[in-house]
Design a protein around this nucleic acid. Structure first.
Lengths: 261, 261
DNA sequence: CAGATAGCATTTGTCTGAGAAATCAACTTC
DNA sequence: GAAGTTGATTTCTCAGACAAATGCTATCTG
């Protein structure tokens, strides 16, 4: 009999809602979300392993592996007798793809949004310039394909957002700089979640495709300066698309005055 | 009798050489080093849990927790039946402090060095500019103290390198941008290891302190533009200090022509 | 009473052994 | 020859026990 599995029903099933494959991963995600969302503040001491694993109805080892993952991402720190406590925010690996995804899974605070855009404003124009210098035909091909898919689906649907992410990922990949590429996974994931976040309020009015093509054309032409400026413009527009009434103070302070001046 | 513990002798002690506290951490470090050093290439499948833990003479749970940490850092990926295999380099969280430290624990390849300096060239001048705009007196105090210590010890000894790291950390912290601060832990650790790396060949001829003070003064004066340029100069000088005969091609391509031109 | 000290309790860390779940490969069957 | 079945292998999860570290407290001592 061809047993068609009904997509994981799991008797007590509440945890496997999302495509979480493993128990320890989903526990880590649960705890991670509670930490980055502020439910567990820095300094907060988690319940002991026995009690915590008991509440979650999982074995101690599964719970421990989850805690070990969070510790590897700088979110918690375990010590005997003291217990496992949430680390200071400065210790968090905010550019870790998972952490970033957890941060943007909820309603990110304005300062966090600002911080991410500020980082993108610094990195991506330069990355675009470097990509223009080092890109090969395969990079170009992938980027063109991504933009075509993006135009086909629009960023209002998942497929379009994936295409958007693919474009930025391939751009950073074209820099041939492993560290910049490593930022890919994180920033791309955040941008992805962010585009989704925009949609929560209302569908995007403006079509972001033209500025994407301008960046592409600059990189295709190996025009580093134009790649830099067009990418800066792309991000500037992306910021204006955010459903944010008023950005926090000194947002335009140091960096952005230079581009607009 | 006041039992003065002889600093962890550990009968079979070979693992606790460094200040590794826990078994799983030191196993993760061992495996992590083997991966980033290239001994275990991407695609390589690690020995099964039973065999691997047997070889290391540790329990399966300790070994599993180590693997879980490496998986959290993107270095490996585990799947039933297939086993645990080393991920592609693009998946590695290269900006994770541990991963970065492991990378620079050995002889880093030229391309990696180049990549890190390229990232610093992009980030730190802008970070200095932002820091100049947002720094408070406490930031200034910590930075000044760090530079004084740096002048006292010189970067030829550990205390001086720590002071150097503290300066850069506090600078990034002054940006008030959590993502840039998060880069601190990683980049600072790398710079620290890097300064140590320079010393392996021969003691540093040039005194790097003057350019550090120039950056400090610009930030003290809240002069964003001067902070940017002086930091760019600091990094440029740091690059020339590297004991590298010839940098790889297109090193001066896109980004640096702009600063020097 | 002050301070050191020894013991106690609590929490994470490590080990062992067993079975469950997933999945790749070979085989069987129609 | 294709679809389904079985089997083997590997990670995943569970359970229970002991070890190690460490903060707390009561006790001892000057």
């Amino acid at each position: 009999m061809p047993v068609i599995k009904p997509d994981q029903v799991t008797a007590g099933g509440e945890r496997k809602n999302r495509k979480e494959l493993h128990l320890h991963s989903s526990i880590a995600r649960d705890l991670g979300l509670r930490i980055v969302s502020g439910r567990y503040r820095p300094g907060h001491v988690l319940a002991g392993e026995i009690e915590a694993s008991g509440q979650l109805k999982v074995s101690r080892s599964a719970y421990r592996e989850a805690v070990r993952m969070l510790a590897a991402k700088g979110l918690v720190q375990s010590r005997t007798r003291t217990g496992t406590r949430v680390s200071a925010v400065e210790q968090w690996h905010l550019l870790d793809p998972d952490v970033l995804a957890w941060v943007f899974a909820g309603e990110p605070e304005l300062e966090v949004l600002q911080g991410l855009f500020e980082l993108r404003t610094i990195i991506e124009p330069e990355a675009a310039a470097i990509a223009a210098a080092r890109r090969n035909d395969k990079n170009l091909e992938v980027m063109r394909n991504a933009l075509e898919r993006m135009g086909l689906h629009t960023v209002n649907v998942e497929a379009g957002r994936i295409a958007d992410r693919d474009f930025h990922s391939e751009l950073l990949r074209a820099t041939r700089n492993p560290f910049i590429i490593s930022l890919t996974n994180g920033v791309a994931a955040a941008v992805h979640a962010l585009t989704e976040f925009k949609q929560r309020e209302h569908a995007l009015k403006r079509d972001p495709l033209p500025e994407h093509w301008r960046v592409f054309e600059a990189i295709e032409a190996k025009d580093t300066e134009r790649a830099r400026t067009s990418m800066a413009e792309l991000i500037r527009l992306a910021i204006t698309d955010m459903p944010v009434k008023r950005w926090p103070d000194n947002w335009t302070d140091s960096r952005l005055v230079r581009d607009s001046g």
